Simulated scan of single mutants.
Amino acid sequence: MADDLAEWLDQKGMQHVRGAPYHPQTQGKIERWHQTLKNRILLDNYYLPGDLERQVGAFVEHYNHVRYHESIDNLTPADVYFGRAEAILAERNRIKRDTIANRRLQHQLQVA
């Protein structure tokens, strides 16, 4: 199993980096993710293992594809991963410029 991971990482040109557990400087993001997952999962009772597995899957789907992350310019991780970030940010800037121009025009019409 470890050899499979090492081979896959080599194919992707990546390194496996390990950090000290419970050490915020190295584990902060994943520790926070686990805390968020745990807080969400503990809200309900699960009577069958499949129920818990489905809830974890739903959380991961929501976290990666729906929930906006402030640290990545209010995009979803999927947007960044699949290369949609620049197009989304450009569209947001276009909408912002158009909105500001429209508000200026409305203000000028009211003043005149």
Rank of each mutant, 00 (worst) to 15 (best):
K38C: 02
N102L: 15
A20Q: 12
H16P: 13
Q35P: 03
N39F: 00
A85S: 11
G28S: 10
N64T: 15
G28N: 08
E31Q: 11
I30N: 13
N102Q: 12
V56P: 00
K12S: 06
D79N: 08
P24E: 00
D73V: 06
Q15E: 15
D79V: 03
D3C: 04
E70W: 12
Y68V: 15
V17K: 13
E91G: 04
I72V: 11
V111N: 15
A2M: 13
R104L: 07
T36P: 03
P24D: 01
L9K: 07
R97Q: 09
E61Q: 09
A87Y: 01
E61A: 13
H16W: 15
R97E: 11
I72W: 11
N64L: 14
L43D: 05
Y47E: 06
N74D: 07
N39I: 00
Y22F: 13
L52F: 03
G13E: 05
N39D: 12
Y81V: 10
T36W: 00
R103A: 11
I41C: 00
R94G: 01
L105D: 15
L43W: 09
D10T: 12
I88P: 05
H65V: 02
L9N: 07
H16M: 15
L89W: 02
T76Y: 04
R104Q: 10
I72M: 09
Y68C: 14
E70C: 07
M14N: 03
Y22K: 06
F82I: 03
K96Y: 04
G50V: 06
T99C: 09
Q106N: 11
A112N: 08
D3M: 10
K38Q: 12
K96S: 09
M14A: 07
G19P: 00
R103G: 01
W8Y: 11
T36H: 04
L42S: 07
R104H: 13
A2T: 15
A78T: 04
F59R: 03
G28Y: 06
H107M: 04
Y63F: 14
